[in-house]
Amino acid sequence: MTTEERAIAALERHAASLRARLPSEVTALLRASLGWAGTDPARNSLTPGFPPLEYSFSTWHPDELRVTAQLFLNRPAPDRRRRTAELMHRLTGRQVIAKDGRARRFGAFFGITAGPAGLTGVEAYVEDVALAGHGLRPVFTGIGVRDGVPTRRSYLAVTEDVRPGDLPGVPGMRKALHSVAGGRTVLPAGSVMVTTGGTMRSVELLAAATGLTPTALPARLPRLRTAEYARWAAAIGADAAHLTVVSVRFDAHRGPGVAIYAVPRWASQAGPTSCFI
């Protein structure tokens, strides 16, 4: 079985274990778009050291299948960005404008979410080459459709050492950030990304900077002590899965939330880093 075949088979098993319906046409599009043939899948910008498929769990949508991928791996970054935008248009009917400028690093990532009734969201994470303020570096812009509603978010890497208490957020967010950081007084540059867009903002912490594992997180974050998280952790093989990112979120309508990103057991090779280092 090729790595691509293993990836799709694992994705289908993961969907089945979460009781999410992944439409067959979406699976077929993903299989055709991986573009791993003739490449080393571990050489990617999403999950370096692993094939570029990252699973996640969100306390806002605990019953969903959530997957992010770097598609068209055998294409240069500008072409990858264009093709990812075209794929999103094919699935949603909405145009994604890939800005002019040089996509030098990864071009784009692609994300899908699905629940029991089928596909619920599609998002293109388009490489951003714009300038930002002091201490921040743009990573990508997330342009998506969620339940028929368009979304747009900006993702900025923090390029300086930062204290958890200095990160943006409401009191509930700050408490969760403190729990994830585990008393660390300083988080190193490149280990934090902030997200803004609409009514939502988040702070994403690179797991390597916190020393956490999927099984250790519920002890620090009570919101993860649920049957849904336990089922997700079992589906990815949490004892051997590598945690990549912990995202602490706040939305004016939904309140605080947590999202967990991990590379599952089947793909384990070595500890991954992250695209926003």
Score class of each variant (00 low, 15 high):
Tyr125Asn: 05
Leu87Lys: 01
Arg146Ile: 08
Glu86His: 09
Thr39Gly: 02
Arg104Asp: 11
Asp147Gly: 09
Ser45Phe: 08
Gly121Asn: 04
Arg90Leu: 14
Ala42Glu: 05
Ser45Trp: 05
Pro52Met: 08
Ala32Ile: 00
Thr151Ala: 07
Leu46Tyr: 01
Val129His: 15
Asp100Thr: 10
Val96Trp: 03
Leu131Val: 13
Leu34Arg: 03
Ala132His: 07
Gly142Glu: 07
Ala28Arg: 12
Gly101Ser: 03
Asp40Trp: 03
Trp60Asn: 01
Ala117Phe: 03
Arg82His: 13
Tyr55His: 11
Leu156Asp: 01
Arg90Asp: 13
Arg80Ile: 08
Lys99Asn: 13
Pro51Lys: 03
Ile97Phe: 09
Val26Ile: 15
Glu123Gln: 11
Tyr55Glu: 11
Val122Glu: 09
Phe109Gly: 00
Arg43Gly: 00
Pro51Arg: 02
Ala108Met: 01
Pro48Arg: 05
Arg137Lys: 15
Pro52Asp: 04
Phe57Val: 09
Pro116Asp: 12
Pro138Asn: 07
Gly142Ser: 13
Gly144Tyr: 06
Phe106Thr: 03
Thr113Glu: 14
Ala32Ser: 13
Gly101Pro: 06
Gly144Met: 01
Thr113Trp: 05
Gly148Gln: 12
Pro138Arg: 10
Thr84Gln: 05
Glu54Thr: 04
Ala108Gln: 07
Leu156Glu: 03
Glu25Phe: 14
Arg102Pro: 13
Arg137His: 12
Arg82Ile: 12
Gly38Phe: 10
Leu46Thr: 02
Val139Asn: 02
Asn74Lys: 10
Gly118Phe: 07
Ile143His: 06
Gly144Leu: 00
Tyr155Arg: 00
Ile112Ala: 02
Thr27Lys: 08
Thr113Ile: 00
Phe106Gln: 04
Gly107Ile: 05
Thr68Met: 14
Arg90Tyr: 05
Leu22Ile: 09
Phe140Glu: 05
Phe57Ser: 07
Gly111Asp: 00
Ala42Pro: 06
Ala37Pro: 03
Ile143Trp: 07
Ile97Tyr: 04
Val67Phe: 09
Phe110Pro: 00
Glu64Arg: 13
Gly101Ala: 09
Ala114Pro: 11
Arg83Thr: 08
Ala117Val: 05
Phe106Ala: 04
Pro78Gly: 07
Leu65Glu: 02
Ala103Met: 08
Val129Gly: 13
Leu73Pro: 02
Thr39Glu: 12
Val126Ala: 10
Gln95Thr: 15
Thr113Arg: 10
Ala42Lys: 14
Arg75Phe: 01
Gly133Ala: 12
Asp63Thr: 15
Arg94Tyr: 09
Arg105Tyr: 11
Gln95Ser: 14
Val122Gln: 02
Gln95Trp: 14
Arg104Gln: 09
Val26Thr: 13
Ala117Leu: 13
His89Tyr: 12
Leu73Ala: 09
Gln70Leu: 00
Arg81Gln: 13
Thr47Tyr: 01
Thr39Arg: 15
Phe72Leu: 03
Ala117Pro: 00
Ala132Pro: 04
Tyr55Leu: 14
Pro76Ala: 05
Gly135Phe: 08
Thr39His: 10
Asn44Gln: 08
Asn74Ser: 14
Met88Ile: 05
Ala85Ile: 10
Thr27Ala: 14
Ala69Trp: 06
Ala114Phe: 01
Val145Trp: 00
